[in-house]
Nucleic acid binder design. Structure first.
Lengths: 195, 195
DNA sequence: CTAGTTATGATATACTGTGTTTCATAAGTC
DNA sequence: GACTTATGAAACACAGTATATCATAACTAG
């Protein structure tokens, strides 16, 4: 974000165009069929310019996805920092916000889950969210343990699994239902810490 | 399995050598650095032979992984078909078997989770296991519903997430602990069907 | 064991996509 | 307005993929 401001306007322009191009092309032709040439042509940017900004297609894709999905993570953080609510309320409200965000950026999330080249970006995102979840667990139960780390990871895998499933099924059960299921399972996972 | 028998001995030999070669090379050099040439050289097989059996590196990889991990799935199926045990017993015994299998084939599972080209194979495996889980749910609670489909998917995502995490952490908490955690979370997910 | 079939190996070759170099020009910065 | 720098254009080297041909070795069926 801060680094972004330090960039030359021309650089910002090039990156933005390349980012928009790769997303459009993946949606049109699929991840496997895109090339650097096709990306630069679509972006109306010189072929060499690509290499001045990114070292590979996957790096460009990772940059685009993380740029966008950071919004979800920040939202998540704010939700966690609101200490006035109870645990269940926390999950409910959060669930609605999350699935709203997914619905608004469905294309990006779909690419995140289906493109092999997005695997690294997906893992980074998961790890980031898991760290937030661990902090959350530590607030409820004092002390730190491997078990909480595992539970946090299970929570994240479940969340991302629900999102992926929802997108693959045409966002079929409505947002509220998904948020409800998310809440139930998240609470269930959290409570299994006792055992 | 049946198709395998129909193959010429030379074909079986070639495929086996190629399969062993790609696994060895991925472990040595990482997925990103392998080429068809390096695979065929390691397998001591002609370059063209590769194309006579597989249309891409990812197809070869998918074939190898699914061939091996089918063992886990079959084990899973047998476990499900044993109707004499209660639900918790089912999960406990299953958990031990699963993590034993993972420990024995750690290399393959590691490749399955870290190689971008294995993403398709991973998804096929998950889907397969999820279908088994749905049948299991339908045995406990009559009738079918989208919710059970979602719970089955959550169960699978949690299982694979635990395996991935365990491998990334050097199989740190011992097998029994992981099996116990698996059991707890699986039961928790299952019980959230009531809500 | 033999005759017929077929997969393999070796070689040559075409092609696509990646990545780099050079230099003039346009666009940004201060 | 002077300086700096990113961009565009073109040529190029190169790696990796993919196919074609043909002689040879290995397998199968009888």
């Amino acid at each position: 974000m801060q680094i972004e401001k330090q960039l030359d306007k021309r650089q910002q322009r090039s990156r933005k165009l390349l980012g928009e191009a790769i997303i459009a092309l993946i949606l049109e032709q699929g991840y496997e069929n895109i090339t650097i040439k096709s990306i630069t042509e679509r972006a109306d940017v010189a072929y060499v310019t690509f290499f001045r900004h990114f070292e590979s297609i996957d790096h460009l894709l990772g940059w685009v996805l993380e740029e966008s999905i950071n919004a979800l993570v920040e939202m998540h953080e704010q939700s966690l920092n609101d200490e006035t609510r109870s645990v269940p309320e926390c999950f409910v409200q959060e669930g609605v916000l999350i699935f709203e965000h997914v619905a608004q950026h469905a294309d990006l999330y779909r690419i995140l889950f289906t493109s092999p080249g997005a695997l690294a970006a997906l893992k980074r995102t998961k790890t980031h969210v898991a760290k937030l979840a661990i902090e959350e667990f530590q607030r409820w139960v004092e002390g730190t343990s491997l078990v909480y780390e595992i539970l946090a990871m299970s929570y994240v895998n479940n969340l991302f699994g629900l999102i992926e499933w929802w997108l693959e099924h045409g966002m079929q059960p409505d947002l509220a239902t998904m948020a409800h299921i998310y809440t139930q399972i998240s609470l269930a996972i959290r409570q299994s810490a006792a055992a």
